[in-house]
Design a protein around this nucleic acid. Structure first.
Lengths: 234, 234
DNA sequence: GCAAAAGTGTTTGGATTACACCCATGC
DNA sequence: GCATGGGTGTAATCCAAACACTTTTGC
């Protein structure tokens, strides 16, 4: 038996595929998203999430890496798959299904430069995202939900923070993400089990008592997880 | 400026799109997945997750509903988007990107009947899934992870249980999902805050003291959530 | 000394755990 | 009566929230 499709089998091979890359960073107490200004129709001149069409031989994640590099010069970052958007009319030039990926980066370590058909890049606080091209606002909202879930179950907060950070920056990150105020003493008790490296180094150029700097102890974390002695939970 | 693609723009519109529907149920203490036997090439005769190609004018979720009904006669269920799979060689007949959806159903209320190019349907315990067609094992594994996350954060366990269930069935569901043994008294204390309707009705045909039957109080749950008096957490 | 933020300790009440025990039904 | 699972209570422990307090720096 063969299936009785309402159209010829070949007609099914008429869709296109794109990926969009949501790059999150953390700076000055705010979680930010990397946007590009489109220098190409459609939506020329509008702000958008960096993304483009996938080549026929390319794997999705591979395409996401390439496209992100083409548009923003960012490379070597770990991408996580988010949701897929496929409304028949979401793209004015044909049926384009887009698969969203997201990543967390240290803003001070990446250097985003607009290239290819991106005119400008900028980091925008996630609480002040403007109207974006296509259905990119919807893509952003659903990916932000995923980011928040990951933040509470995996130690990805350290992907957002600088290599050396203060405990207060860590607290601010969670306060901003979940729009809450946390008690300092209790927050520190809560993160006690997370393996951190305490540096003999302090914050500089602050006009109050400088805070100690910490780093995430990735190796110790892996060991604890493997021994089932620890589960990250915030 | 226009983008310098390595191929003509029109060549991008040569992909096809499918959806796969992972239907989970709960029966005899086991979480089960609905599989179909393919009566169509490729992979004719193999077990697979129900799925098919999306029509050009169809939205993804709409397609998932239609295809699930075509193949298994199941309708009117809530589908949640899972991951998307798009390796260039995942389908022998061309580049087909597939978007997975999953749903939880009450096995005793749905009546799965093989139709269209599905030869047979069967419910298979998730701990004993055989080798499946295409990359369906990979799709299953990643969707199961999502199911487990949802089970611990949303009251979807009640979508899997019969309308009236015993507290022990509820416990068994979580024990099976997470492969753990739970203490009965403590489990009941833990679920105390979940709004349940206690029926004046008991289990039948058991050769021991019959257990009370309960239902999930959806309305009370909604009210509690809206008043921010409750967050589901297991 | 003062402002500002870093950093810590104590108390309390609620949740989690382990474990023991009683209850209702079929045979 | 006994086997089987249903159903509950208690005590010990752990954890989270609230709050107060001390410390270190710049100016």
């Amino acid at each position: 038996m063969t299936h009785n499709y309402k159209i010829e089998f070949e007609k099914f091979f008429s869709y296109s595929l794109s990926v969009d890359c949501l790059i999150f960073g953390f700076e000055e107490g705010e979680i930010k998203l990397l946007l590009i200004k489109r220098n190409m129709d459609p939506f020329k001149g509008d702000w958008a999430i960096p993304g483009d069409l996938v080549y026929p031989e390319e794997d999705l994640e591979e395409a996401a890496s390439r496209i992100l590099f083409d548009l923003t010069n960012i490379k070597n970052i770990e991408l996580h798959q988010s949701q897929t958007f496929g409304k028949p009319d979401r793209h004015p030039q044909g049926r384009v299904i887009t698969c969203a990926y997201f990543a967390m980066v240290k803003i001070d370590e990446v250097n985003a430069i607009a290239s290819s058909w991106a005119n400008e890049v900028k980091w925008v606080p996630i609480q002040r995202i403007p109207k974006l091209a296509f259905d990119h606002n919807e893509i952003f909202n659903s990916s932000l939900e995923l980011l928040k879930i990951k933040l509470s179950n995996e130690p990805i907060c350290f992907d957002l923070l600088p290599d050396k950070f203060t405990l207060n920056e860590l607290q601010q990150l969670y306060e901003y993400a979940y729009k809450v105020n946390l008690n300092k003493a209790n927050f520190r008790k809560k993160i006690k089990p997370i393996p951190l490296i305490e540096h003999n180094e302090k914050q500089k150029n602050v006009k109050h008592r400088p805070a100690k700097l910490f780093s995430f102890d990735e190796h110790k974390f892996e060991r604890l997880v493997n021994q089932r002695n620890f589960r990250f939970k915030m």
